[in-house]
């Protein structure tokens, strides 16, 4: 799954640690989500969307079919 988390974070000039604190997760989790190594749970995806005042679909998009 692709996501815009890094872009959204950069727009607000937040560090990964700051975002992690806001989301109540580890910085490693933020990093793994940003790099696409880990897909967050639905509750965390909702928290991310709510934090950036947007929708889940705006943050996360499925990989395009080959």
């Amino acid at each position: 799954m692709r996501n815009r988390l890094k872009v959204l974070r950069a727009e607000r000039d937040w560090t990964q640690a700051e975002l992690a604190r806001e989301l109540d997760v580890s910085r490693q989790t933020v990093n793994a989500v940003e790099t696409g190594k880990y897909d967050p749970s639905l509750p965390l995806a909702f928290r991310i969307a709510r934090l950036f005042a947007t929708t889940i679909e705006d943050v996360f998009q499925p990989e395009e079919e080959p």
């Binding site: 997760v25 490693q28 989790t29 880990y38 967050p40 749970s41």
Partner: peptide
Amino acid sequence: YRRFLREADELRRK
């Protein structure tokens, strides 16, 4: 340990 797993950061739990 069960408490740790239940409350853990979700990636840490994985």
